[in-house]
Amino acid sequence: MSMDDDAFVLGGRSYRSRLIVGTGKYKDFAETRRAIDASGAEMVTVAVRRVNITDPGKENLLEHVPPDKFVILPNTAGCYTAAEAIRTARLAREAGIGNLVKIEVIGDERTLFPDVPATLEAAAVLVKEGFVVLPYVTDDPVACKRLEDLGCAAVMPLAAPIGSGLGIRNPYNLAIIIEQSRVPVIVDAGVGQASDAARALELGCDAVLMNTGIAGARDPIRMAHAMRLAVEAGRASFLAGRIARKLYATASSPIEGMLD
C-alpha cells in the first residue's frame, strides 16, 4: 500500500494534509502565512467580520492566504444563535469562495462550548441550502450522530475548550464517535502540543483543526512544523497497527543460542 493512497476526503475533495489550521491570533499576516506553510495545511479557517470603514486597511488576509492556493473555510465564530450562524454562513458564501462552512454556535462565553440544539438547527437549514457543513460540536456521540444524520460533511468534536490547550479530555467519547461515524471525524479545539494532535490521529480521527495551539506557542513556526510531523506520525501509527497492551513482558531477544 502506497503512503500516497491515504488521502483525506472531505466535501468531495481530496487532501494530503490531515491538519487544518486557523488564521487568528498571529502577530501579522506574514507570520500567519509562514505558520500555515510550516504546518503543511491545505485548508484554513477564517472569520467573517465587518470591514472597518474608517480604516479598511491596505492589506487583506486573503492577499497573504490566497484562495487559489488554499481552501478557505469560513467559520461562524461569534454567533450565539442559529439565526446568527445561518446569516453569517450565507454572507460567507456570498463572498464567493465556496460552499464550505464551519458552524460554531456558542452556548457559553466562558467555556465557548457549542450550543448543541442551536448547532443542530443551523446545520439542518444550511445543509438544505447546499452548504458543505462542518459543525463544531461537543464530544458527545449522540450529538455527532444527529449532525451526521442531518447531512453534515463531517463532525468536529472538541478535544477541550477553544484555546485551553488541555488536549483530548475524553478519549473514550472520541473513540466511540470515531467508531460510529460514517463521515470524517475532525478534532477541533483544545490542542495544546504536538502529542495531542498525534494522539487524535492515533485514536483514528481523520484530521485535526487547531489555531491557538500554533499561534499561541512561543515559536509558532516551529510548533506548526511540530504539528505537521505529529499528525503524520499519528496517522502512520494508527495505520501501522499497534501492538497489544500486555501486563507482563515478552522478551525481544531470542532464548535460542544463549550462553550457559
Binding site: 488564521t23 491570533k25 467580520r49 465587518r50 470591514v51 470603514i53 478557505i72 454572507l91
Partner: peptide, 10 residues
Amino acid sequence: IEVVQFVGGG
C-alpha cells in the same frame, strides 16, 4: 447596510 470580509480566525 453591512459590508463584511474574511479576517483571521479559528
